[in-house]
Nucleic acid binder design. Structure first.
Lengths: 371, 371
DNA sequence: CTGTTAGCGCCTTCAT
DNA sequence: ATGAAGGCGCTAACAG
């Protein structure tokens, strides 16, 4: 029998080598040393440390192992563990590259929850590019993540996502069940409901001549909101809503080009008389529009009421508070992780249980209520 | 010699097993299959794929390998690669848990730059807790990241950071060279200079009776800013600046408790006469204070000018624009990665080259200039 | 220029 | 209840 050159049997400490090859110098304490120090076999130590059920050792032995681990400062190499077991205790998150508050909050909620359960998260930002998405999924795949939480970009075939699904990789998407060509575990909010909340709130305050403020490019989430709001307005017999199609391509618009603000000012000065409330598809746009309206001498909410969407922090500012609709982002992030975890643990629930939809809620403030 | 049961020699495809044990069913195409399909040895393929300099093969062979890789859809397992080579193509980032814009921008800049160079980033949020920091560093260590970019928390011994340094792990910190008990590669901005910019700008506009607005808890970064500003004011012979110590513990204060806003209102109504400008330690606080001041009937900037710090997006809003000082966050994120990369590549420059300090810049707006 | 060999550190089946 | 042995997929030193 080949003698394995007795590796890992001293407390020797060597140069930091690139591993591989036939080095013998040890650079970190391995399970081997722990086993040796305890007079046990590595497999026994492994079994105990991983709490394997079939590994029943005396309490004394177990304590000795734990004690030795602490004394030697042993930490298992997750790389090696991953190679051997297939599990890496690492998740992947592909989010949007836009520096927008809701997106950040959601990502952080996910990461925090994952970490509370022993996972770290590889975070990748996607500029809403289908090709980039494919690559990024592949990069996560290369690292054998235990699961992925993905905000799929608007378009594209999402080939790599489908491939992951096919290979049985735990996967949860955000806001995508309604627009992906294949079934998938998903977390989202009921955006139509959110839109309805916006419209109902205004109706209750007696507003009926509504104008939507939105960017040029539509996306699924925004379309849903508008559809929900329009439905309510139609049912209430309101006149056809106006549309202010603000020419901005991407967030942020706050410091956007002057033309953007000029456009809004111009639109308001020409059409403000025709309506008594504005529904913005996002808080940032809502705040901008509201500020410009006030500069034009319009009284908010007497002349014009404003409702936003997202519940960004600034909407709560004390001098120009904006009524808004907020999604429960923390809950959504947590739910995404839990969905992932149940897949990782092999609890493959029924598909309908894998799609969690949260209800957004209205936060009424002075931009509609008045002070 | 033990025959190794000829592993990896078929195109067989088996169940997704947890690896380990003596399974023979293959579940993914390995370097072995590529080598076999080319009639080469795995090590040759490995050498070519990793562009190892000592591996000189004919162009024809190389093309055949690439072709086969593409045809078979081979992707190297970074887990296995990491175990064998010690490099994981993965970095760690420990940032602040505070959902604040500058912090996010910096993290994203780092992640994006790392990704452009083939690295993915494990992102961890730290609630400014020394114990958590130690744990988090350890978790990254467990995963053998190629390097770490860390925003060390305010206090604590930072034992694990020191340990990483001792073990030669590439490490870059943010805003920490001036307050850590050991030398380290670091990226930061010249915050004193930023404070000076704030003060000088006000002096140039003829303001001399300054009030600082800050939170209760100090931190190194904020102390630096204030120190810089105070120095300038002192040299100009201004009267002793006032201090508005707003009682908020953590960000965000935007939607903060009513008492916070009450405090600011109260302070302003009692002390506004005594000063002609306010220097806020952050934009969010500056915007709040400015808004409340206007509500109290003060004219901005005639009665009271406002300067913030950070350059958050909302400071650029078109109806209440706040003069501010901005750090070049994108550059800083990129620099952090480059510093890490040079360490990874073994280019251990002189220490003084490892500490990069960026100059913040003033963005003058109506809160000081008037409209 | 290519193949052989010996690990990287851990897990897991199976025999004891 | 414990230990021996093989393998996860790849790299790297060395011999041809």
């Amino acid at each position: 029998m080949a003698k394995r050159s007795s590796p890992n049997t001293g407390v020797s400490r060597g140069a930091v080598t690139g591993a591989g090859g036939k080095r013998t110098a040890r650079t970190r304490v391995g399970i081997h040393q722990v086993a040796a120090a305890c007079g046990l076999a590595p497999s026994t130590v492994s079994g105990v440390l991983n709490q394997r059920t079939d590994c029943r050792v005396s309490t004394k032995t177990r304590d000795r192992i734990y004690e030795t681990v602490r004394r030697l400062g042993y930490r298992p190499s997750l790389t090696a563990k991953g190679l051997a077991s297939g599990r890496t205790d690492t998740l992947g998150l592909i989010g949007t590259a836009q520096d927008i508050e809701p997106s950040n909050r959601l990502c952080y909620a996910f990461e925090a929850e994952a970490r509370r359960h022993g996972y770290l998260t590889l975070v990748i930002l996607n500029p809403n590019d289908p090709d980039a998405e494919d690559k990024q999924v592949t990069w996560l795949d290369d690292r054998s993540v235990d699961g992925m939480f993905v905000l799929p970009c608007e378009d594209g075939p999402h080939d790599q996502l489908a491939e992951q699904l096919r290979r049985g990789r735990p996967l949860v998407t955000l806001d995508a069940a309604g627009r992906l060509p294949f079934p998938v575990a998903d977390v989202s909010a009921d955006y139509q409901h959110g839109g309805r909340l916006q419209a109902q709130h205004l109706l209750e305050l007696g507003r009926r001549r509504i104008c939507f403020a939105n960017g040029l490019h539509s996306c699924w989430v925004v379309d849903q909101r508008i559809a929900g709001a329009e439905q309510v307005l139609l049912e209430a017999g309101c006149p056809e809503p106006l549309r202010m199609n603000v020419p901005f391509e991407i967030f942020p618009i706050m410091a956007g080009p002057a033309e953007t603000h000029d456009y809004i000012r111009d639109f308001l000065s020409r059409h403000a008389q025709e309506c008594d409330a504005i529904i913005a598809t996002g808080d940032e746009l809502g705040i901008i529009a509201m500020g410009l309206a006030m500069q034009l001498g319009l009284k908010v909410p007497q002349d014009l009421a404003f409702v936003g969407y997202d519940g960004i922090r600034f909407a709560a500012n004390p001098f120009m508070p904006l009524t808004t609709v907020a999604n429960p982002l923390d809950d959504m992030g947590r739910a995404a992780f839990q969905l992932l975890r149940s897949q990782i643990n092999g609890e493959i629930g029924r598909p309908q249980d894998m799609q969690v939809i949260f209800k957004p809620s209205l936060i009424a403030r002075n931009s509609t209520l008045g002070s």
